[in-house]
């Protein structure tokens, strides 16, 4: 039954061209039609079918500089916002639909995600992997495109008053990039920060139940803000991956500044019109 629903969804929302893009994005598949991380063309098409309407009609995503995503292994480093990872979905959809040749973006999900029934399985079927250094390395060694939000929950959970303020960056991604000689593409997402305006994180209560944050959001559904995604020039760090943390912090700062610059350019272009203005 689920299979039929999935098939109907694909037929209703995906054009022939989009379907072929999905097939082209998946590189080597085993005789079973799966890649080792659990992605198959049919599952990926189903998840694309469920996001393509949001991508085109609801958030009317505009992109800038998408050809900066290089072929081969790469790390997409982006700002995180919006309480729920819609920004991740939109980046992945953009790279799948607009980049030539199309690519599947692998995201890294929280380590507890696999224990959630249905959700864990869904994540793995659309290319999302448990956030783990080991997994990240084997993906990059396989020349995949990996998306990382170094702000983590600090970014996605922030309130509307902190919009477009980059939070503290994790540093693991720079060392990972140096170890695997991976170019870093700074990505700025504009529009997701106002989508679900949170007034408070309710930190004490969240701490009590073990959640990272509990957003207080006056809207039920995400607001139909216009989303712009800007891809910056790839940055390559050609240095000893074993250098001390101090040096790594400096490189993290370089990436952070690059994202900041893209954000500022985009925000300037968009201005105050959060529902119509394009930052791309």
């Amino acid at each position: 039954m689920l299979g039929q629903i999935r098939q109907k969804l694909i037929e209703a929302y995906l054009s022939k061209e989009e379907k072929s893009r999905v097939e082209r994005a998946l590189k080597k598949l085993a005789s079973t039609g799966f890649d080792p991380w659990g992605v198959s063309p049919s599952t990926l098409m189903a998840s694309l079918a469920s996001t393509v309407w949001f991508y085109r009609r609801y958030f009317r995503v505009a992109t800038h500089g998408i050809q900066n995503v290089p072929p081969g292994r790469c790390l997409l480093i982006a700002n995180h916002s919006g309480q729920v990872p819609i920004d991740a979905m939109m980046i992945a959809t953009a790279v799948l639909l607009e980049l030539e040749p199309p690519r599947l973006v692998r995201g890294m999900v929280e380590r507890w995600a696999p224990s959630l029934p249905f959700i864990g399985t869904f994540f793995s079927r659309c290319g999302q992997i448990t956030g783990d250094m080991h997994n990240a390395k084997s993906l990059l060694e396989n020349d995949e495109c990996l998306m990382v939000f170094p702000e983590g929950v600090g970014g996605s959970g922030k309130t509307i008053f902190d919009r477009y303020e980059l939070q503290k960056f994790g540093t693991g991604f720079v060392r990972l990039a140096m170890e695997t000689k991976t170019p870093i593409v700074p990505v700025a997402v504009i529009g997701c920060e106002e989508m679900l305006p949170s007034l408070s994180k309710l930190s004490p209560l969240a701490k009590l139940i073990g959640a990272p944050y509990i957003p207080v959001v006056p809207t039920v559904l995400p607001l139909p803000t216009k989303i712009s995604i800007r891809f910056g020039e790839p940055i390559v760090f050609d240095a000893n991956p074993d250098e001390p943390d101090v040096e790594v912090y400096r490189k993290v700062e370089t990436v952070r500044t690059a994202i900041r610059t893209e954000l500022d350019t985009g925000l300037k272009l968009r201005g105050e019109r959060i529902f119509t203005g394009s930052g791309a």
């Binding site: 085993a30 005789s31 079973t32 039609g33 799966f34 890649d35 080792p36 659990g38 198959s40 079927r125």
Partner: peptide
């Protein structure tokens, strides 16, 4: 072996 497969698909095969 050669490939990796989701359990439900393995059962169907």
């Amino acid at each position: 072996g050669e490939g990796v497969i989701a359990l439900s698909h393995a059962i169907r095969l």
